[in-house]
Nucleic acid binder design. Structure first.
Lengths: 331, 331
DNA sequence: TGTCACATTGAAAAGGTTTTCATAATATTG
DNA sequence: CAATATTATGAAAACCTTTTCAATGTGACA
């Protein structure tokens, strides 16, 4: 049916071994044979069957990146970083989405167990730490952007506790004492960590923690609006709000705008992620920026190292974040 | 090294053929054997090697979606649709990005030629129509969201000419005669088509086409700002602006806001795509909505049909769009 | 001339599955 | 009871590569 290495061999009047050698640019093959093979490949329109090749080599040179969905545009820089690192070493990166379904996440990891890919990177897993630990024992798994408590699988992330702490400390330094937090009900470790950072910053400044100031919503802008509405309708509303993502912060600002609050003066906002839109909104949003590209690049480099290593590296790597200050904090 | 079907067979005291039958839920195998095999699989932690399986079956049940990058968040609904259709038939969808590099696009298509996937969907190809036509002759390729002139490859899209025409006609119906267009220098067929629609709408209403009113920029919000600045500094500036994407429109509105134009009154805006942010901005953006999920779903259904078909379907399927009217057109 | 090193080559094994084919055992039919 | 289906099974072929191993041919060297 479709043209195989045998057909090429026949046409070029050489053995399949020689064809393989030419195709893989091995030494010890005559100029003559090289030409004959290349001509045959060309004229037959042959492309090697990766399934046969990969089976024989038991290696695919493909890495699977598993993400919840492609909606969060800030994943795109992480993926660019992953691709750059992978491509530099002759690997391809494939992306698959779980739509937040842990079962589907497990299904996708099946591609790893069944050797359809050489490794997998989880960007915000839905599976629990125990499960991932168990899988990490036997397979090439890494995590990126999101760490998991008690998970000894190679991880590249930022220090979300410190990032939250820095963000809130900045608001406090701006003179605020009543600081709202809009976070998510659906707990990812990063949101938990940012919340811890929030509390630590209060403690740093001897401001008592008030659970009324914490709103639990979702990742959508709408829930940012609702969160802001809730906070501003408290008897003693906050004068600054830290949202654990820019999407949420943008929703929150939207509500505040519609109610006539003067953002950056009466009410300050700090987001997280520095997504493209965060400086398109008027007023521009202050936010915490994490090194997306660098995290993606590093996790792939480490993962590929692990593939070759005797003793895989199961460490946690923490890259550094930074504050980006704009209108919403009066900067 | 790793556990194979042979190990399972040995442990279960049956032949590999029987193991395979159990694993693939074939009939004609005794309850006894089923149990023995399942127990062995469990105790050995066996998962079948997909490379062996796929090679033998010459089928992977995987489809590759090739996109420029995951940055454009509106791809996410298309992908959701693709996944739903694929999953319903036991296929997986893998995503790979080209970062707008046609060479990389070709490299990724290599996975199709080399049978690492059963089919590929191009969402906004960077390759030209001739190349894609040639590839489409021999391989299972489809296009989605973006058609290509003179390309006879299965395509699912909307009628971008009509969509542009509808959008601009709406602005005209609102009383505008001086209408700006912000489009992109980098020509995709959809942007060309929307521009054609723009011209047709003018013609529909006997408004002469004025090339001064057309600004060619990029897909970023920044270029939307620049485009708006250019248009509003014309001797006789437009009173309404159609941008071929919401990102651009948001940038444009951002400029207009900063200059104190009253959006929806002095100056109207119409975007394209109905991205999540388009109703988060104040003022809310009027826009053209295309059925992303439905397009993704249909293209996969048709592509899978084609895989089984004698005579593959190379038609163009056009789904319908709609206007979403909000503040920016005074609605 | 004989020996050796080296370059080039092909036959065949290996990688892990599914599937075909033949066989044996059992059940059904007349 | 004989003849025929039916069911359950395993051996081996097939899928397409890469790689090992042995073999051939060539040139260099003594």
């Amino acid at each position: 049916m479709s043209v195989t290495i045998k057909d090429v061999a026949k046409k070029a009047n050489v053995s399949v071994a020689t064809v393989s050698r030419v195709l893989n640019k091995k030494s010890n093959v005559s100029e003559e044979a090289i030409k004959a093979v290349n001509d045959a490949v060309e004229s037959l329109g042959y492309s090697p069957n990766f399934l046969g090749r990969d089976l024989r080599k038991s290696e695919t040179r493909r890495i699977l990146a598993i993400i919840a969905s492609t909606e969060q545009s800030f994943y795109s820089d992480v993926i660019r970083g992953m691709e750059a690192a992978a491509y530099a070493q002759g690997y391809d990166v494939l992306i698959a989405t779980t739509q937040n379904d842990p079962n589907h996440e497990m299904h996708l990891l099946g591609m790893l167990f069944s050797r359809a890919v050489d490794g997998a990177v989880l960007l915000g897993p839905k599976l629990d730490a125990n499960t991932i630990n168990a899988l990490g024992e036997k397979h090439n798994i890494a995590m990126c952007l999101e760490r998991l408590d008690n998970c000894n699988v190679l991880t590249v992330t930022i220090d979300n506790v410190k990032a939250g702490r820095d963000a809130v400390n900045y608001l406090i330094r701006k003179g605020h004492k009543k600081i709202g937090l809009i976070t998510t009900l659906q707990r990812s470790q990063s949101s938990i960590d940012r919340e811890i950072g929030y509390k630590l910053a209060l403690k740093d400044n001897d401001i008592p923690y008030n659970e009324e100031y914490v709103y639990f919503g979702g990742y959508e802008t709408e829930q940012g609006m609702t969160g802001c509405e809730y906070l501003m309708n408290l008897p003693s509303p906050p004068t600054a709000i830290f949202a654990i993502s820019d999407m949420i912060a943008i929703g929150a600002m939207n509500y505040a705008l519609s109610k006539g609050y003067r953002i950056g003066k009466d009410l300050m906002f700090m987001g997280f992620d520095n997504i493209a839109y965060s400086h398109m909104f008027v007023p521009h949003l202050s936010t915490v920026e994490q090194p997306c590209y660098a995290q993606g690049k590093l996790v792939i480099e480490k993962l590929i190292e692990n593939m070759k290593a005797e003793n895989p590296d199961h460490n946690l790597y923490t890259l550094s974040h930074s504050l980006v200050l704009r209108d919403s904090t009066g900067d």
